[in-house]
Design a protein around this nucleic acid. Structure first.
Lengths: 254, 254
DNA sequence: CGGCAAGTTGAGCCAGGTCAACTCCGGTGG
DNA sequence: CCACCGGAGTTGACCTGGCTCAACTTGCCG
């Protein structure tokens, strides 16, 4: 079993990618952690049970996308956050707060870690501590940025922001304008706080304006990065041939 | 100066309240931290400059409310998060992300801490580490809950949620139904992603329905907690005498 | 190649945005 | 003590972006 678990860890993205937590651990620490962790594969739509989370409140995402979902009484659903590979979430104080569920949005790999073990690693290993701390900060800022977007942006602007968010997460340096959208339309709509219909119309708009170029449902190329950026930043004139500015210019000569 | 700074720390809320970071420190650690920190008073509307944040990227709030604000090109403003006393924010990786500003929403006290010193305390003091970690997690979950609220709730529901959020932060055990609203209407509107006019109408609604009772602009009593709770949870029938259910019942007999 | 889930399109409607006028309140100076 | 001022909050009337509902198309998987 020990051999097995160590094997398991040595093939895991959390160990193989130097930016992630497990890559910071020494060989012995990795073995220790292996014994106190459980890998798990989730299919799309599967949720981690509340009971399971009580005994294993630390979840590390090694592949796929997992969401934190909130449900309202009348069935409205919203997705509070996307968790990506490398994200580690500590739900020890979660029960006090609004109940949200952890639901996989596609086939995903997660690793459940014993809290005691995590605390030990964090106490003993400054590198691991830094990585964990930075990841949590990043999650926090992502959530805040997202909240700011939801608060005051219109649908098209939210979508534009999201595409950039995707790009910063996923794009290879080789093809910076190709972006993969790792979730279904419905889930993206729930994340962006709009209806799937509206989302569809927005995608269509961006394609019509020649800003996006669809390779498939889940892969786009950004053909006009500056305009998309301006839309994301809330520049209402972006992509509209900037009509309102002309008259002002003329007045300046008078 | 050492004596001065220690004095300063011993009167600070971050030390006096046992739940907060500085209360976890030993006497020597507190003295050390004093020398590597700078207290600062902010008036409403004052922002921490980007330069200042570069040299002092750790900010602890000891009194008042500080906001993280985002500005769109056309002047739309949104408030991504409220930072409350006890919150500590680490902006070391902030510059990479969307520029947001830290702006005080009322007279506030903050303490800028040297990152090296914070790291040392965190390495040496497990209690302090836990408090800091839990605070950051809390901020993160708050931001996610807030994002979920913004995504799929209507105006009245967002306001109801916010009132509960305030209650959990501020209320004394003695008078659990009294809630203080620590920010101006405009700022609350920016936080909840709506217009001040709409916010005003929502407050009025809740008062008309006998759910809220205003003591002043910034102090309310919740007169009907269950209904407010149901509104916050997205129960569309709450406070409407549940008319739509009757006809359905009749049809069931047919 | 059939069947179902996912995504799209269209038409009509409403919650909340917008704009403008108004009230309220605390501070200030005559 | 009161008139005045400016900022904050409120109210009213109108308008629109995005929601809703329903029908349709597309794409995926056995």
């Amino acid at each position: 079993m020990t051999a097995d678990s160590t094997q398991k860890c040595r093939k895991c993205a959390l160990f193989l990618d130097g930016r992630y937590f497990c890559a910071q651990l020494s060989s012995e620490q990795l073995t220790e952690l292996s014994n106190e962790s459980r890998a798990l594969t989730l299919e799309r739509g599967e949720a981690l049970s509340a009971d399971g989370l009580k005994s294993w409140p630390i979840i590390a995402i090694s592949a796929g996308v997992v969401s934190i979902q909130h449900l309202l009484k009348d069935g409205r659903k919203s997705i509070a956050a996307f968790l990506m590979p490398g994200d580690i979430i500590d739900l020890r104080s979660f029960s006090r707060r609004t109940r949200g569920q952890l639901v996989a949005l596609g086939k995903s790999e997660v690793c459940r870690v014993s809290p005691q073990m995590l605390d030990m690693m964090v106490a003993a290993n400054p590198g691991a501590r830094t990585v964990l701390w930075e990841n949590l900060r990043d999650q926090s800022f992502r959530a805040m940025d997202h909240a700011a977007d939801l608060a005051k942006k219109r649908a098209l602007e939210k979508l534009a922001s999201f595409i950039f968010e995707c790009r910063s997460h996923y794009s290879a340096a080789a093809a910076p304008e190709f972006v993969s959208i790792p979730v279904r339309r419905v889930d993206l709509a729930d994340y962006l706080g709009m209806q799937p219909e509206t989302l569809s119309r927005c995608f269509h708009d961006l394609e019509d304006q020649g800003i996006l170029d669809f390779k498939s449902l889940s892969a786009v190329a950004i053909s006009d990065v500056p305009t998309l950026r301006r839309i994301a930043n809330g520049d209402r004139a972006a992509g509209l041939a900037a009509e309102p500015e002309k008259p002002i210019k003329i007045l300046r000569f008078a």
